[in-house]
């Protein structure tokens, strides 16, 4: 099973015991994020809405591109793949 990394937004590090990068084994992005929430359940309220979808203004990036594993478009993961949970910003 591929070993992958998930990067956590700075403001939420108190939900992961201070860790910014989490390593786990998963075959798909959805599976990786499901494991993330099982391991750190306090993250869930910050990242998902009541319907279990990603909150607005959040994006999950894989190799620089947005993915939507909670909206029915999961992707397979490969060894050492990185998922970045990012807060979308706009304006200036």
């Amino acid at each position: 099973m591929p070993s992958v990394s998930i990067f956590i937004p700075t403001l939420l590090h108190d939900c992961t015991n201070g860790q910014r990068r989490l390593r786990l084994e998963a075959t798909t992005a959805h599976d990786a994020l499901k494991q993330l929430f099982e391991r750190y359940p306090l993250l869930k309220v910050h990242l998902l809405d009541k319907e279990g979808k990603l909150r607005p203004h959040l994006v999950i990036l894989s190799e620089g591109l947005p993915i939507k594993p909670f909206e029915g478009s999961d992707i397979p993961l490969s060894q050492n793949q990185e998922l970045h949970i990012m807060q979308a910003v706009s304006g200036g």
Binding site: D14, H46, R55, H57, A88
Partner: peptide, 19 residues
């Protein structure tokens, strides 16, 4: 505005917080 509203607490006078 992105991460929503929760309650955090500190038991060490603000040195650390937990949800």
């Amino acid at each position: 505005y992105v991460y929503g509203a929760t309650i955090r607490q500190s038991k060490d006078e603000g040195k650390s917080f937990s949800q």
